[in-house]
Amino acid sequence: MADRPYEDIPGTWIFDAERARAGYHLNQFLYTLMKAENRKAFLADERAYLSKFKLSEAQREAVLQRKWNRLLELGAVVYALAKLAFTDGRSYQYMAAQMTGMTEKEYVDMMLQGGRSPEGWRFKSQRESH
């Protein structure tokens, strides 16, 4: 197996070949949301729209429930995932805040104060002590 040192970074799913393979159909579904008529069709009947793509059961449920981190874990690439948030009329910032478990206001405030320091966020072992 390929060397994957980035798997030791906490709170992060690097989109590599392995995730790209697992997430291929998921990402191709998300890509269709670039068209206004597809966004409309998806929102009108999400399950029916999703049935046209070869998603795993876990991927389908995660889309329906907008479980952003779970989708990253199951192979979504974040730029494609953003199209789902936009389809919902949400901002990128809204989705990013949800990924961190913060409210959008808490997230915006953190950024206004300079963002998240890398201290304590470099290795998974640093999070286990928290």
Partner: peptide, 10 residues
């Protein structure tokens, strides 16, 4: 970083 629980890192 714009993804996951570590989003917002600078």
């Amino acid at each position: 970083q714009i993804q996951g629980p570590r989003a917002g890192l600078t």
